[in-house]
């Protein structure tokens, strides 16, 4: 239990560090030196020191938005078995709870954006409401596949111990498709490049960044921390699948897990460096591809795993 809580805290604390890796990779490809790896900690510290300015159009919901988006993200992390060690809490069906909890976070992010009466934020909100619908379907498809393979429905049953390694041995190569699909979901849910460009300069073309335009100071810090935690959660899914080893020794497990997570972040950075953002009407097709991949993996696995 103590170990699980420690790992959970470590995950939240290290999430900003990993996010900085993406910036570093992008800088490397751009031929720049890049920002320090601790940049996000400096930013958070700066934001937490400031006061806030609120739009006169906003209400209580606007202030609740950052809290709920951070709260849901870190609560979701509680259910994830970090490095394959047991999670803090776990029960049968917690996967459903986690997906819906992230939905709650999304509800409040959108509501907070609509609170400002800004047309740009409304635009971002509409996109934020649209794309994750398909992501959710893909996530449930992944759960169905994993449920069929494990007979359990909780993140700890899916990702802890040597279960990921067993996925590979029973399902084999279709797991590659599952990983690609999860990567697409990661990019979509966390507003990364082919879906959304966090570094663009035009509000019209943003999704997540435009929704938090009016947040400032500590509120914005909470949102950033929530976004880092959410990105970490999705990366951790993939990290456990690409590196399914279980050494039983905690320190070794954690080190390997951290390396795998790092690899996922580097991959995100790579994608951001070599790809351009899709036109908005192309995004649904991109996300649908993830659903198609998982569905496809499920069909061929379930048909031939018998």
């Amino acid at each position: 239990m103590i170990e699980s809580i420690l790992l959970w805290t470590l995950a939240i604390v290290s999430a900003p560090f990993f996010a900085a890796v993406i910036l570093r990779v992008k800088a490397f490809f751009g031929g720049r030196k890049g920002s320090p790896l601790l940049i996000h900690y400096y930013t958070l510290a700066k934001l937490f020191k400031k006061g806030s300015v609120y739009s006169t159009s906003t209400t209580l919901i606007f202030k609740l938005g950052p809290l709920v988006s951070l709260g849901t993200a870190i609560t979701a992390l509680l259910f994830f078995p970090m490095a394959g060690r047991p999670p803090v809490v776990s029960f049968s069906g917690d996967a459903i709870f986690v997906f819906y909890l992230l939905g709650l976070g999304r509800f409040f992010t959108i509501a907070a954006a609509m609170d400002t009466a800004s047309p740009f934020e409304g635009m971002g909100a509409a996109r934020e409401a649209y794309f994750p619908i398909i992501c959710e379907a893909s996530m449930f498809m992944v759960s169905i596949l994993f449920y069929r393979l494990t007979g359990e429905l909780s993140l700890s049953a899916f990702f802890s111990g040597n279960q990921p390694a067993q996925f590979w041995s029973t399902a084999g190569s279709p797991m590659i498709f599952v990983i690609i699909a999860l990567f697409i979901i990661l990019l979509t849910e966390n507003a990364r490049v082919p879906v959304d460009d966090p570094a663009t300069h035009l509000e019209l073309t943003m999704i997540h960044e435009v929704m938090v335009l009016d947040h400032s100071g500590p509120d914005f810090g909470l949102i950033e921390l929530g976004a880092f935690s959410k990105l970490f959660l999705y990366s951790a899914f993939i990290a456990r699948l690409i590196c399914p080893f279980d050494f039983v020794h905690p320190a070794l497990d954690v080190a390997l897990f951290a390396a795998a997570v790092l690899l996922v972040y580097i991959a995100v950075g790579l994608v951001e460096s070599v790809m351009a953002r899709y036109r908005m009407d192309r995004v649904p097709k991109f996300v649908l591809t993830s659903f198609a991949l998982v569905f496809f993996a499920a069909v061929i696995t379930l048909e031939f795993a018998k």
Binding site: G51, V53, T56, S57, L67, S118, P218, G221
Partner: peptide
């Protein structure tokens, strides 16, 4: 959050257009 905002200046303004 309450602690973070203790003693901080809170401003009001229009929505950023």
């Amino acid at each position: 959050r309450i602690r973070l905002f203790r003693g901080k200046p809170i401003g009001h303004s229009g929505t950023w257009g």
